[in-house]
Design a protein around this nucleic acid. Structure first.
Lengths: 246, 246
DNA sequence: GGGAACACTTGACGTTGGTCAACTCATCTA
DNA sequence: TAGATGAGTTGACCAACGTCAAGTGTTCCC
């Protein structure tokens, strides 16, 4: 929770703020891997890497964004808060994912706070520079556009699920999102605490607990943070996954 | 509901499919007004205008997108459907608004169906051509990026509201979105039927009715499709509008 | 080893919103 | 004018989820 716990982790050498291994990590990101090495080097000239401890606040809802962020390592949660104390997890990001592009591009206050759910290393691309790069380098603009489009579609799915599906169905969707397989049975490890998952799914922890026992009827067995799914297609059917396309 | 009710409304003259008055209308759109006339003319070379009657389906969830659409006149609703019969209105668009950029850019199936809520004229920018234009013309890419960013943020707000606010609060937010004033009292006309508004707010029509009577306590009086709001700031306070920034 | 702190679960109960049915009212049509 | 139709409202009831409280580990720390 302590903003001061964060540490700069730069080592400026060649006029570039990034260490070579960080630059290499950035180049491997699905987000930027289509960019030419020259362009990549250029847009990261002013970039820096910051470390955050678990529960450190990266920024707060309402702040003005000063940099586009990319998770290099760890986990970041984006939580929305309203005045009467309500709080929810809008998104959970893992290594390789970019966040808050929309706030940086529009220069509007954050709609969410960001908190490190695990010790994390975060890349910052300063906003002023980034906006200029996007305006001037059409390859970058195109990459951002496709990335934001994909992200946009996942939010549309989220809105539909919130409006149309039950808590147990949304939990099932979340579990399916954790598996890599599409058939048969599997065991997945929950990557977050159950209270974090509850906030992500959009229910209270008590309700999450009940949703899990509800899913026993669908062949889902929980033991600590290990979840065994007996029949993946059956679970997909239960939450109508993939059936949205009528 | 009849796909065949739509009519092509083109009149090709100068190798351009658009009538001059349609081109002028496009140039006035907040979306494209920052583009140079030359660029605008270029991206609209293959554009066409289609008319739809009330309740015509413009496309269906699951279809592969073939063109970016812009509402020139009328109203369009985007509805999401799930397999067990549930349906909800994710968005309602009015004249001047673009839709489905994300599906066109990613070439993925629509997550929603589009229906004309009023007799409407819709501009189509063919997908193949549009994707090429976005890749080659950086001004266009930048405009799309800022537009999609704004849109993205409104969806984030939507997710937060769905997770954290009551039906009556979401209705109040919807009503506030209809007013232009920020203070005092006002009377707004509901631009859609109440069943459409119910789907938009994310409740059943019966619940919308009850939410309206609930809002009487906040100075909201309904008479047909005229809604009088006695105290706009009080209504904003009721649904915590603008207080998200803690 | 004792106990404080935390995460999670379970039960009892209240509130919100969905469901079903009846009813009103306006519009449209024969 | 009578009847049909559709939108909206209202009431009774129910299911889903939130709230509050108690209870069970588990971990951590002295």
């Amino acid at each position: 929770m302590d903003m001061n716990a964060q540490q700069r982790a730069n080592s400026g050498t060649d006029g570039h703020n990034l260490r070579p291994e960080d630059l290499a990590a950035v180049a491997r990101l699905p987000l930027f891997c289509d960019l030419s090495p020259a362009l990549l080097a250029e847009i990261t000239v002013e970039a820096s890497v910051t470390k955050y401890a678990r529960n450190d606040i990266i920024f707060r809802q309402g702040d003005i964004p000063n940099a586009l962020r990319v998770v290099l390592d760890g986990q970041v949660g984006l939580t929305g808060t309203i005045a009467d104390g309500g709080e929810t997890m809008v998104e959970i990001l893992k290594a390789g994912e970019m966040f808050i592009p929309a706030a940086v591009l529009t220069e509007k206050p954050f709609l969410m706070s960001a908190v490190a759910l695990q010790p994390s290393r975060i890349l910052s691309l300063p906003g002023e520079r980034f906006r200029r790069d996007v305006r001037e380098k059409s390859d970058l603009a195109y990459v951002m556009l496709t990335s934001l489009s994909r992200h946009f579609r996942s939010l549309v799915r989220e809105v539909k699920d919130l409006k149309l599906k039950s808590a147990a169905q949304r939990l099932a969707l979340y579990l399916i999102g954790l598996t890599t397989k599409r058939e048969g049975s599997t065991i997945v490890r929950l990557p977050h605490s159950k209270s974090v998952i509850a906030a992500r799914v959009g229910v209270r922890p008590e309700t999450l607990s009940r949703a899990f026992s509800h899913l026993k009827g669908q062949g889902v067995v929980v033991d600590g943070n290990a979840v065994s799914i007996a029949d993946i297609p059956a679970l997909r059917a239960y939450c109508h996954e993939g059936e949205e396309i009528i």
